[in-house]
């Protein structure tokens, strides 16, 4: 079969496969996306018709101290919580992967926090742990440290949200586990035959074959972290306080759009975020060429 006719035939089939995706793109994603792009150049308060105001919204961001506070909070969060969370997830996945009894139990147990994840109850739980006279406060006061409520301390409050994110390491862990299962046993056998020890097997079989999964988790958790909303909303009651120390970027978008009815500015903020995420992801993809190993390429 010639390459051209094959491409042609596959192209036809591909478009059949992609029918749902196409519909979704047009109806559910693209139209709202274009709408929000347009809105980002307007003054739109939800109730009246949008009025074009050029680059005003973007200009406003530079002078908006809350915008900069939100950028700072979000960047710190991404930089600190992603490595911690993925590190934990990978470590636990490796510990759990090979022939341990009670695996099912541990997996469920570690996954439980992710199930609870973002429920309203978390706000109360977090106060119980990090609040004034909470678990941590009482534990530290034994050592004579009186920090009071971590949630109300601007220099500590973000760390409680980082802990919350690390606490839900279950979901990347499950993906790591599934990825570890994908590694053919034969490769380990072959490595053993070649005289590779545990460490060697780990570095020359496990890690290279897991790189696509690591990359996958890294990309998605990074995107997810940039978009962190519910946790921040629940724990700070939507304020981003104390003193904007947990004012996540999406929380600020939400405040502008839904509380302040400034949907034009909110759309502009959202587009800036999207471009930022896009750039970070693009950098990840460029770098991935140097460390991610795909079996089929």
């Amino acid at each position: 079969m010639s390459r051209v006719s094959r491409l042609h035939r596959q192209g036809g089939a591909a478009h059949v496969f992609l029918i749902p995706w196409w519909l979704g793109l047009v109806l559910v994603t693209a139209v709202p996306l274009v709408a929000s792009l347009y809105l980002s150049f307007t003054d739109y308060n939800i109730l009246s018709t949008p009025e074009f105001n050029g680059l005003e919204n973007f200009r406003r961001m530079f002078q908006d101290e809350y915008f900069w506070a939100a950028v700072k909070v979000t960047v710190i969060y991404v930089l600190v919580s992603i490595p911690l969370q993925l590190g934990f997830a990978l470590l636990l996945a490796l510990i759990l992967d090979r022939g341990l009894r009670g695996l099912a139990f541990y997996r469920s147990a570690f996954y439980l926090p992710s199930l609870l994840g973002t429920s309203v109850a978390v706000a109360i739980l977090w106060r119980q742990i990090f609040g004034d006279d909470g678990l941590i406060d009482r534990a530290l006061s034994v050592f004579g440290l009186e920090l009071g409520s971590w949630l109300q301390n601007p220099s500590l409050s973000l760390s409680t949200l980082i802990v919350l994110n690390v606490w839900t390491f279950g979901s990347p862990m499950v993906i790591f586990l599934a990825g570890l299962r994908q590694i053919p046993e034969e490769l380990y056998e072959a490595a053993k035959v070649d005289g590779a020890g545990i460490v060697r097997q780990f570095t020359s079989v496990t890690i290279p074959l897991l790189t696509p999964i690591i990359f996958f988790n890294l990309i998605l958790q990074t995107i997810g972290a940039f978009q962190t909303f519910t946790q921040a909303h629940v724990v700070s009651g939507g304020t981003g306080g104390p003193a904007n120390s947990t004012l996540f970027y999406t929380l600020y978008i939400y405040q502008q759009g839904f509380t302040n009815f400034d949907m034009g500015y909110a759309s502009a903020l959202a587009w800036v975020l999207m471009i930022a995420i896009g750039l970070v992801t693009a950098v990840h993809f460029v770098l991935s060429k140097y460390w991610v190993f795909y079996g089929d390429d």
Binding site: S36, F226, F229, T250, Y254, A266, M274, G278
Partner: peptide, 17 residues
């Protein structure tokens, strides 16, 4: 495009949707 649509913050899409 698929990847980009993971990056969309949902709050601006909610209203048009």
């Amino acid at each position: 495009i698929t990847l980009v649509s993971v990056m969309l913050p949902m709050h601006v899409l909610v209203i048009p949707q």
